[in-house]
C-alpha cells in the first residue's frame, strides 16, 4: 500500500487517494436497493442485497487492511491517534443517541400513548373498553406472556459483565507487556459474546414458540424486539471487531504505545454492555 504524500515530511498523515470508500458505497447502494426490492417481494431483491453485501465485505476488509498496514508502517503519530480516538468517541455517541431514541420510543408508548388511547370517551374511539396496562398488545392484539427477567436475561447480564472485565483485563495486561494472557482474555471475551448471542437466540425462539411474544404482539412486542434485536446486532458487530483484534494479537500487533484498535474495540464493547444493562432494567425487569 502506498502511504500518503506527507508522511515523510513529518506532518499530519493525509492518505493518498483510495478506492475503498467508493467501493463500500457501491456495495451499500446494492444492499439498500436489494432491501427495498426484498420487502416488496421482488425476486431480484435477495440477489441485489447479496451482491451488495459481498462488495461491502470486500471494501471493509481492504480498507481496514490498508489502515492496519499504515499503522504497522508507523505513519501514525500522536496527533493521528488522537483523531482516531475522538472519531471513535463521537461514533459511539451517535450510536448511543440511536439507542436513546429507541428507549424514548419505549417510554413514550408506555407512559403516554397507551394511557392516552385508553382515555378516550366511548363516543370517540373504536376501541371501547380498552384498558391501559403494560405489557399490552393493544386493543386488537393477541395475548402473549413476557420473558422472565430472572431466567436467560439475568444470566446474559452476568455473561456480558464478565466479558467486559475480561476485555479490560486483556487491555491492561497488554499495556504491562503480557501479550500471551491478553490474547487469551480477548479469546475468552469472544467466547462469552458468542454464548450471549446463543442464549439470546434461544430466548427469541422460546418467545415465539411458547410465549407467543412476536413482532405482531402490539406495541410491547414491537419495542421488545427492536431494542433487543438492535442490541444483538451491535453485539455481533462487536464480536467481528474483537475477532480482528484477536487475530492481530496472535500476529504480534499492538504494544503498550500502539493499541488504538484494541482500545476502540474495548470502548465499543463497554458501550454495548451499558446498553444491555439499561435494556435489562427497562425492557425485561420493570
Amino acid at each position: 500500500m502506498n502511504t500518503g504524500a506527507h508522511a515523510e515530511k513529518g506532518g499530519y498523515f493525509v492518505p493518498s487517494p483510495s478506492p475503498f470508500p467508493i467501493t463500500l458505497s457501491v456495495g451499500l447502494f446494492f444492499l439498500c436497493l436489494g432491501g427495498a426490492l426484498l420487502v416488496n417481494g421482488s425476486a431480484a431483491g435477495p440477489w441485489a442485497a447479496a451482491v451488495g453485501a459481498a462488495i461491502m465485505v470486500f471494501g471493509i476488509v481492504a480498507w481496514f487492511g490498508a489502515v492496519i498496514r499504515e499503522s504497522r508502517a508507523g505513519v501514525y503519530h500522536k496527533q493521528e491517534a488522537r483523531s482516531f480516538r475522538l472519531g471513535m468517541w463521537w461514533f459511539i455517541i451517535s450510536e448511543a443517541l440511536f439507542f436513546a431514541s429507541l428507549f424514548g420510543v419505549l417510554f413514550y408508548e408506555r407512559v403516554i400513548a397507551v394511557p392516552w388511547l385508553a382515555s378516550f370517551s366511548a363516543h370517540f374511539t373504536p376501541w371501547v373498553g380498552f384498558k391501559a396496562a403494560w405489557p399490552t398488545s393493544g386493543p386488537a392484539g393477541a395475548s402473549f406472556r413476557v420473558v422472565n427477567p430472572w431466567g436467560i436475561p439475568a444470566l446474559n447480564t452476568l455473561i456480558l459483565l464478565t466479558s467486559a472485565s475480561t476485555v479490560t483485563g486483556g487491555h491492561d495486561l497488554l499495556m504491562k507487556g503480557d501479550r500471551r494472557t491478553a490474547t487469551h482474555l480477548v479469546g475468552l471475551t469472544i467466547l462469552l459474546g458468542l454464548a450471549f448471542l446463543g442464549m439470546q437466540a434461544r430466548e427469541f425462539y422460546d418467545a415465539y414458540t411458547t410465549l407467543h411474544l412476536t413482532l405482531h404482539s402490539g406495541v410491547y412486542g414491537a419495542t421488545f424486539y427492536i431494542l433487543t434485536g438492535f442490541h444483538a446486532l451491535h453485539v455481533t458487530i462487536g464480536l467481528v471487531m474483537l475477532s480482528v483484534i484477536f487475530g492481530r494479537l496472535t500476529r504480534g500487533h499492538f504494544g503498550p504505545g500502539d493499541h488504538f484498535g484494541f482500545q476502540a474495540v474495548s470502548w465499543y464493547w463497554h458501550f454495548v454492555d451499558v446498553v444491555w444493562l439499561i435494556l435489562f432494567v427497562f425492557v425485561y425487569w420493570l
Binding site: V105, E109, L117, W127, S137, G138, P139, A140, G141, L215, H216, S217, G218, V219, G221, A222, T223, Y225, I226
Partner: peptide
Amino acid sequence: THFFSAAG
C-alpha cells in the same frame, strides 16, 4: 409491528 398503529 404496531409502533404507529393504535390497533396494537
